[in-house]
Design a protein around this nucleic acid. Sequence first.
DNA 1: CTGAAAGCGCTTACAG
DNA 2: CTGAAAGCGCTTACAG
Lengths: 330, 330
Amino acid sequence: MVNIKEVAKQAGVSASTVSRVLTGNIPVAAETRQKVLDAVKDMNYQPNPLAQGLKGTRIKAIGLFIPNVRDLVFPAAVRGIEDTAKQHGYTVVLCNTDESIEKELSYIQNLRRRLINGFILSTARSNSPHLLALKEEKFPMVCLIRHLGEELDAVVLDNRDGAYQAVKYLVQRGHRKIVILNGNMEVYLYRERFAGYRQALEEAGIPLDKRLIFDNINGWDESGRVVRDMLNSGVRPDAIFGTSDPKAIGVLKAVKDCGFRVPDDISVIGFDDSDIAAFLDPPLTTVAQPFYEMGVKACEKLIRLIESKRRSRPKVEVLPARLVVRDSVR
Amino acid sequence: MVNIKEVAKQAGVSASTVSRVLTGNIPVAAETRQKVLDAVKDMNYQPNPLAQGLKGTRIKAIGLFIPNVRDLVFPAAVRGIEDTAKQHGYTVVLCNTDESIEKELSYIQNLRRRLINGFILSTARSNSPHLLALKEEKFPMVCLIRHLGEELDAVVLDNRDGAYQAVKYLVQRGHRKIVILNGNMEVYLYRERFAGYRQALEEAGIPLDKRLIFDNINGWDESGRVVRDMLNSGVRPDAIFGTSDPKAIGVLKAVKDCGFRVPDDISVIGFDDSDIAAFLDPPLTTVAQPFYEMGVKACEKLIRLIESKRRSRPKVEVLPARLVVRDSVR
DNA sequence: CTGAAAGCGCTTACAG
DNA sequence: CTGAAAGCGCTTACAG
């Protein structure tokens, strides 16, 4: 690999000059500049980012924390982030945290030292002191999809309203006995979605029924199991609200496995509008979360944070939720 | 961030000594060693990987090229890779190439200079001179899922046999008019799958029928469109073989949209056994490609390549395909 | 076994 | 506008 000295030699200038034309913020005579540019092109020279990084220049990389790429919902966001990063010359390091604090810590340990200029976090529970600590160090970071309150920049959906819209729609269609399959209530977004559920029911004068409320459910296997147990035990709801598409997918299958039709016997509604939603049978009615766009926004926000000198106050950007009506609700 | 000098000072030794105990391959007196370790622990010191990288030490990062994380099939492989990488202290940089040579080139340009120790490529078409060139430079790399012949290490499935098993199964179940929806024939793996299709038909004495063979089809939208057109034009196959699960998913929907039942009227078979396959309706019969395990294997192979001095001859590891029978074939 | 020195490939004050 | 020098934080021959 050719280095700056060899380029300097070929161009007949000093290494300093080469560096100056390449970094670009210090003026160089047009003629000299051209000679350097020619040599650079000729030798196909590219500065070593490690050396640049050592000098404090940007290494142009960001760390992305998500629970699991393998979850239906994250790839679209990841793609939005990566596309945006690439566009700005940044590289993205993927970290699967499985929502484990230990894993997060070990990634942070590993990446913190200048190998990365900032983080996008899609992983936060309410108690994340290690993340707040990073924030204290002025490490650029933005939360995506999930967030930790007002202290950190974030791009999130209006989760309460999304759930509200979903359940309100169910109510409007005449359903009253509405099951909610919710995620871990330690995660802010699930608390919000529950709040939306409750609000819609309250407005309709439908009392909360503990037997219809299921917490801390993850993914399709778990949601399927819960629904099967419920149905087998004789409970017979009008509709089931899965607070994520994976949960709704588990519901779809479990309901049919138990001999009921969707939506004729039981309506199902999801949350996410993942890529597969329209291809399910029946096509899933669900609340859209524009993952790709959210990824783009989060990444742009982060790069702005990294590249701007002064810190402005953190802002959490709340995007509107939108119900996508397909055929899984009667 | 504390650096090696400060640690040396606290431990009362030279920076050289600190470096020696940390890298570990040069002997240090037990007592000195302990002092250093104490200081390191005390100050929570971690060497700056940038500086280490500059000196030629491993930066411990790998670049992962896939067409698109958002495709159903890649996340599981990505996860296998990332888990393995993490276990070995490596970091993975995700690159979505969209099968574009230009994108690949720009990633290579960007990552080559020591920011990455090697590549995992899941992206190769048959003409990939830029990848072969990397290989020439002795850059460690391994192909995953797709490969480029014998010159490069690789972990792939026995694609021909997988397709053969699928179509043979169809034939055994009494189907004769079997449509194949195949991918881009420039991709080796799709040529192989086609070969398997042909072989199974030949063995059964069923002549190839051009009207049942569709090439260069990508993803569910395209496959759905093709199937709808075919069905509307009056062609009525016994079975449809989608050479990837996404294609099969498009088929499932299109067939039903056209008023036919799966599998009663038309059987459908896929390839991949993606996570969602069992949750489709009907659950999809498909050829399993153990993505996670393949990711693990590829990553281990790459790390071995990176960390071993001498190059051994490239080996392509071909894993056996396995048909997973569910309910989409009559 | 240990320290002082050189050097990895850059960038950026410091002179001129 | 340009060059020589120092320095980023390490590692590793070179002496001792």
